[in-house]
């Protein structure tokens, strides 16, 4: 049964991904202001949203783990953190590639960018921490606390980064520096939505595989 679900998810995400690529590169009209580079939005925005969702999932499952002490939530937390980090890496790389042509700089001190980068770093250390800690309940407990701290820190980082960028306005020069909105037609919104669904299905598929792997690891560790 579980194999059938897994295969269905894989098939589904493969089909959706092909349609998604067709929509992004052929079907959707080119944005007038930014040109072809704006097409990166249909990958960058869904991937960023899902990576933030993954971080919320890590925090929620960590709270539930500390509360219920059920191994299920710990496995979900580590799986979501790793897949979220993969999406976070794609988010950062695609963001950098998009920023150079439209803003004239690779990176800028804008609040959202700073918050995303710092959160990314916190979750890199979360995963490192999990790997460096001796296996057992203490490590899981402490990892859960770190995940909650990361989530707790996010609004503060965003608030501080926002104040900071007001004091030091980021330098943006390119075609997107004046107009912030990258959507100018409904077709663009449709493609963005479709792309979000596609990356979401792929996320669920990856999460499932990672969860199974974690399950096998913990079974192996309890047997030895």
């Amino acid at each position: 049964m579980s194999n059938i679900i897994k295969n269905k998810l894989l098939t589904c995400s493969a089909i959706f991904m092909f349609i998604n690529l067709y929509l992004i590169f052929i079907w959707v009209p080119t944005e007038a202001n930014q040109g072809a580079i704006q097409r990166i939005l249909y990958i960058h925005v869904p991937v960023s949203q899902i990576s933030m969702l993954a971080i919320i999932l890590v925090a929620v499952s960590s709270v539930l783990f500390l509360w219920k002490r059920n191994q299920f939530w710990d496995k979900i937390a580590i799986s979501a953190a790793e897949i979220g980090l993969l999406y976070g890496t794609i988010m950062l790389l695609s963001g950098i590639l998009w920023a150079k042509p439209v803003w004239g700089v690779w990176w800028t001190g804008e609040a959202k960018l700073t918050t995303a980068l710092i959160l990314y770093l916190i979750y890199v250390s979360y995963i490192m921490f999990r790997n460096y800690f001796p296996t057992g309940s203490q490590g899981q407990r402490i990892a859960a606390i770190i995940a909650i701290i990361g989530a707790l820190d996010t609004p503060l980082i965003y608030f501080a980064a926002n104040l900071w960028s007001e004091a030091h306005p980021p330098i943006v020069l390119g075609p997107a520096s004046e107009n912030d909105s990258s959507f100018s037609s409904n077709d663009m919104r449709i493609v963005w939505l479709f792309s979000t669904i596609t990356f979401m299905i792929f996320f669920v598929y990856l999460l499932r595989i990672r969860y199974k792997l974690q399950d096998t690891i913990s079974k192996y560790l309890t047997n030895t």
Binding site: T114, I118, L121, I122, V124, S125, M128, F129, Y132, F133, P134, Q138, I146, I149, G150, D153, L156, I157, F159, A160, A161
Partner: peptide, 20 residues
Amino acid sequence: IKVRAREVLLPMLFLPCIIP
């Protein structure tokens, strides 16, 4: 306190968290 390589991990956790 019980983690391996804590000299590396501690700043890696501490510094991003104290950004505000």
